[in-house]
Design a protein around this nucleic acid. Structure first.
Lengths: 251, 251
DNA sequence: CCCCGCTGTTTATGCTATACACGCCGGTAT
DNA sequence: ATACCGGCGTGTATAGCATAAACAGCGGGG
């Protein structure tokens, strides 16, 4: 059992890659890891990530809480499997003669769509780097999108980190705004305006003149436009990448 | 008590701005919100954010758990106050005739330093948009840094979101790597290499050729260099901003 | 002077993850 | 055909969590 240097595989990762051995000796399982994960996703979709408890998930399946532990090693493992299942495989890359910019845009929008479909993903606590099958598939897709840039491999990885980070941040901000809006029973734009008014009440314009100026403009209402937020940020990021691409190609 | 449209102020926010009324009628308090928050930060610094429980924090102060509720309305409120206190006021902007790029760089590095000083901040669940005093002060500083760009106010806000998102993401990735490294008792670089070897074992190079290529290069070892990661990402973001600055100035 | 209100505490409730031991069932070896 | 054993789902138990509710003491304002 020489481990000497190789990191141990987390059980959750082994499960996701389907490396669980099924001895086929005893009684047939009445459940499956897939059904447990699906039930977990259902609970999260209905009540948010905070509503995911082993008891609730088990209730969804008409089963006792402890039964789940035959299929997932722990709650954390369940969450990792839920994340992997929710992402799913990346969408097919755009066909035809498209440049890296379109490919990366599609990659980012695909992730954004996933996060929008299941908002609980945004609140998922970050654990290990991507090691589950679909995460690797997304990484593969991203690396392919950058194939035409002439970047070194390390630069590609860092670039994807940057894009992914932006997508997650934007989705998080939107989820926050949506949550406060729902709590107050208002629309997204009303919530954004309310946040601005609240900030204006708390922040002394003498001490915070720049903040006061930003509040005086209708900037916060604009910030409630999620599509514009996303397009702006992604545009900046892509412009920054493009600058490096040009430098590599010409210099 | 007309609320008509103005969002209600979360108690945590009121507390942070020091708007709590002290009736001064009964017995003198033996504690203070500041001491509770400081104890919470101490617990988080020692055992991570997961170790922060009302009981542990109270124990740090030699007091019963319920006593804390005289000073913080809930655990969530305590976390918000901890976050605000940990960020503290932003550092002074660089003196002299420096451009927006240097100012934004200092702003980003300041945040990075805060996150590095208290790693638990990275795991902090995101709640409402920034409404606490120090958050507003950082926002003020960021807006001032962008004063020379000619951006509209909304563009400034979105730009700061972008930069802040990158800083948080990079810190999160580094914290993850550090956690796995510590769990395995290895250095950061060894952990990065271990992750790569693990990925290589799981991901079939036939299905994931681009990932295989990235692994074949020493890219993952490079990715273990946090300073290079940060500089690369921030450089891309700033280049993207600069492209828009030039467009605004010239067009 | 007295009492009200604020202090910290004790107690209790309900929820959480999960270790442990059990009864059961059915495929497999005999 | 039969016995058995390993995987299955369950019931019970523990420890930790946030927080509601009721309580004892003390000190300054009426």
């Amino acid at each position: 059992m020489e481990d000497h240097g190789a990191a141990t595989v987390p059980p959750a990762v082994e499960a996701a890659w389907g490396l669980r051995e099924r001895p086929g000796k005893g009684a047939r399982p009445g459940l499956s890891a897939e059904r447990v994960v699906a039930a977990g996703i259902a609970v999260a979709a209905a009540g948010g990530l905070g509503a995911v408890s082993m008891g609730k998930v088990a209730g969804e399946l008409g089963v006792s809480a402890m039964a789940l532990y035959r299929y997932v090693g722990s709650k954390d493992e369940l969450l990792v499997l839920m994340e992997d299942a929710a992402y799913g495989p990346p969408p097919a890359a755009p066909e035809g003669d498209v440049g890296w910019r379109d490919l990366v845009t599609a990659w980012a929008r695909g992730q954004r769509e996933v996060l929008h479909r299941n908002l609980w993903l945004v609140r998922m606590p970050v654990g290990t780097p991507p090691l589950t099958p679909n995460s690797v598939a997304w990484l593969e897709q991203g690396l392919r999108a950058l194939a035409g840039t002439g970047f070194e491999e390390g630069e590609k990885l860092r670039t994807l980190m940057l894009v992914n980070g932006f997508v997650r941040m934007e989705a998080g901000a939107r989820a926050d705004l949506a949550a406060t809006a729902r709590a107050a029973g208002r629309t997204l734009e009303e919530a954004a305006v309310g946040q601005g008014r609240l900030l204006a009440r708390l922040a002394d314009p003498g001490r915070f003149p720049a903040v006061g100026r930003a509040l005086a403009s209708r900037a916060l209402a604009d910030a409630g436009e999620p599509e514009a937020d996303f397009a702006f940020g992604l545009g900046r990021v892509l412009d920054g990448i493009e600058a490096l691409v040009r430098e590599r190609a010409h210099g």
